[in-house]
Write a protein that binds this DNA or RNA. Sequence first.
RNA 1: CGGGGUGUAGCGCAGCGGGUUAGCGCGCAUGGUUUGGGACCAUGAGGUCGGAGGUUCAAAUCCUCUCACCCCGACCA
Length: 573
Amino acid sequence: MRMSQLMTKTLRQAPAEADTVSHQLLVRAGMIHQVASGIYAYLPLGWRVLRNLEQIIREELDGAGGQEVSMPVLQPHELWQRTGRDQAFGQSLFTLTDRRERRLCLGPTHEEIITELVRHQVRSYRDLPLLLYQIQTKFRDEPRPRGGLLRVREFPMMDLYSFDTDEEGLDASYQKMRRAYLNIFERCGLPTMEVEADSGAIGGKDSHEFMVVAESGEDVIIRCRQCKYAANMEKAQSAKAEGEHGPLKEKEEIATPGMKSIEEVAGYLGIAKMQTLKAVFYAADGSLIFVLIRGDLEVNETKLKNALKCADLQLAGEERVRQAGLVAGWASPIGLSGVRTVADDSIKMGSNFVAGANRPDYHLSNVNYPRDFQVDTMLDIAVAQPGQGCPRCGSPLVSTRGIEAGHIFKLGTVFSEGLGASFLDQKGETRPIIMGCYGIGVGRLMAAAIEQNHDDKGIVWPVPLSPYHVYLCPLGADKADVATAAEEIYAELGSKGIEVLLDDRQESPGVKFNDVDLLGIPLRLVISPRTLKSKSAELKWRDSEQSELLPLEGMVRRIEELLRPGNRPGHPQ
RNA sequence: CGGGGUGUAGCGCAGCGGGUUAGCGCGCAUGGUUUGGGACCAUGAGGUCGGAGGUUCAAAUCCUCUCACCCCGACCA
């Protein structure tokens, strides 16, 4: 490609609204163009990168036995009602109505469609297992798009679905995909961390996310430095510190004027926060829930939501709490009736707690479970925090932020039962197909790659992702010998299938060098009267300060070698 | 949805206690001089000042409403 023909325009300054590095660089390098909030066009360079990513993904999935299909974006809304996921997705589901008043939606994902599809294709255990995937545009009406390509409303995504006859088959498919994912991310030059993930309200067992560690990531990862434990904060567990277990004392009412929060109460009484019990009120699909947790801990709403199996969970308003006969700020688990109570298991880890008296300005001391009150449900609903102990080995946990690049998930029979996708086993009995699903946000992966590979001058593409492999730059192209040499090399590299960008623009060297640094092309090849004196061209890697002279003779072959994975001297990858 | 912010040329910004023809830098076009790290000179094009309504002799500037975009939170298989 000749740069003079390429539709691209580099910007010295990024638009004011871009504040993550990848967003700024994608715009400055002319890779994407924002059309509306969370809606982007991919320009020629950006599209090439995206296609490179897709290609890597295809190769790995095909290698793992995947078969590519293409399913419609436009889907009958009725199908989503049948699985109840119109509710689960709620407002994030883009919906529309056709001319016959039929309700349709734009697919945010494709479990319904593929299950419906497989239902018609699969009859017998002999038709299984299957791994089907597509790379398709997804639509989600996110409440808040952000970070350029990191969270958008329309985005390219690879989604693969596995279909097996039994759990063992599912486990095998899951492991196959795990390995394929690791290969994909490795080939993309992206170190990822595999973490345990929340499996959501819709059942399923195992679920893992592949995280690219980055400050701009939206997810918080809790992990252990000692053992391999790592989990999304939504899912993460921790060993909670044990409180004091003394002889149970008589409970007593104590005055706590104006002291509503745990901070205030503990401070006022001069006791540790872990000597208190905290009451939090939620509305789960509309009904009030009393949540109790030890004062030093926070409620993990994902865990709570899973425990309640509700679609919608929000903090309950004060009005709602008052109506239930509770006194916000001094609410007590004692003497509750008609309200579902969920407690974190931390309330058993300690004794003689301070809790509300359900009377303004008063708390109760020496409150003990189960002596003084009962709960409906007791389980772990606490947020795991750095500094707490690892649930496996007890070492202190640490946290980092990450971008979710991929997610794999054992679905089980949720969709196959819901939509009637079954097969006949060897005994001729009808059984539901066992499913798994596996997604990679391709656009987000592109942004993550930049978050991870850039410097103050611009993008530093890993070779397999770069829109072009070689940037060929004649300096002083008005000299006939320079122009001729550049054209010859350009043609020869091209004939070898090496993707070359020839900078034939009438620009000063500074402009060209800064542009190629911004675009992030891995290999820079400069030809000038100076290099021609020694019958050579100057070769420089994007991520290196040093350059070397490469003889014109045999140069194309040398570059071919260098670009092959693992062939770069001093670079293991 | 709650909180905060910004809308003036393609990008970054100034102007805003009302007052001619709305500026600056970068970019763009033309001509010329340059050519190893964002060159220089000259000339030029490009604006419904986000939109609507209002106040006024007069509105980018004051008032009301509205829209868009960004950030924090909520939300997010």
